[in-house]
Design a protein around this nucleic acid. Structure first.
Length: 249
DNA sequence: AAACGTATCAACCGCTGGGGT
DNA sequence: TACCCCAGCGGTTGATACGTT
């Protein structure tokens, strides 16, 4: 018996999300939390499948997302982690608070791979290219065998956490004065504003000032949402995200 | 200014594993 | 045990931005 499709797709919208859809999804999740992604679009009034909503939330709407280009230090860590975990992007992303697996995967495929090739390294094996060509090719699909040592893995985790936190703590943000005109209840909004913390000062400007890929002429519902959508560098600490979990639970 | 090629990244697709019945 | 449902994952695609000629 075959699997049911995740959604019947008939009448469901696909493609880039509009500001209004973002607004609806954000509003719904912040007010109700997430119990079942399949129900989210129905309850939020969206013509999307649950999967699409989930992806949009995880990759773009989550308030804890760290925007802006990956730093050299982050790149180095990605390379290090990739040599250990292979293409297990979610595992790698778990070491980068505020970064998504999709973002890291894209960055790997578009930049780091090239960088390694320029350095004469095979991006799959992380070995010098000549050496790899003489060797076996069992990792050709990117399924590099990670070390199975949990102890080693934990040590690496500690090391990386130290590195990443030292980088982001310099960016303490001023409290953001946002108000909601799109239906957030006051207590949630207050908590969200607290944990939001505000935007970075622009010292690390993202190349894409319109990260959603949305049309620039789209009507923006609120200054709150607009600032957040347009802000290329909003950065939130995980402490703040923990607070969000409290709101949801 | 236009045409073309390349880079980037948001979003989709299909599969897998886990939990529930 | 078999089946179903769901969330999550990784690979891939397509639209758009950007650079070059």
């Amino acid at each position: 018996m075959g699997r049911q499709p995740c959604c019947d797709k008939i009448g469901l919208k696909r493609g880039p999300w509009t500001i209004e859809e973002d607004h609806k999804l954000m509003n719904f999740i912040l007010n109700n939390g997430i119990q079942c992604w399949r129900l989210v679009p129905k309850l939020a009034g969206l013509l999307r499948c649950g999967k699409s909503c989930r992806l949009r939330w995880i990759n773009y709407l989550r308030p804890d997302l760290k925007r802006g280009a990956l730093t050299e230090a982050e790149e180095d860590m990605i390379i290090q982690l990739h040599s250990r975990f292979g293409n297990r992007w979610s595992k790698i992303a778990s070491h980068f608070p505020g970064r998504t697996d999709n973002e890291i995967k894209n960055h790997w495929n578009t930049r780091i791979k090239k960088k390694l090739k320029l350095l004469g390294l095979d991006p799959i094996t992380h070995k010098p290219i000549e050496q790899h060509e003489n060797g076996d090719t069992k990792d050709e699909l990117g399924m590099l065998q990670p070390s199975s040592s949990g102890e080693q893995e934990n040590n690496l985790d500690l090391d990386l956490q130290t590195k990443t936190s030292s980088g982001s703590k310099d960016h303490q943000m001023s409290h953001r004065e946002g108000t909601s005109s799109f239906g957030l209840n006051e207590s949630n909004l207050s908590n969200i504003n607290q944990m939001w913390g505000g935007f970075e000062d622009g010292s690390e400007v993202a190349p894409d000032a319109n990260p959603s890929g949305l049309g620039m002429d789209a009507a923006l519902p609120t200054d709150f949402l607009q600032d957040w959508v347009d802000g290329p560098n909003n950065l939130l600490s995980w402490d703040g995200f923990n607070n969000l979990e409290e709101i949801f639970l």
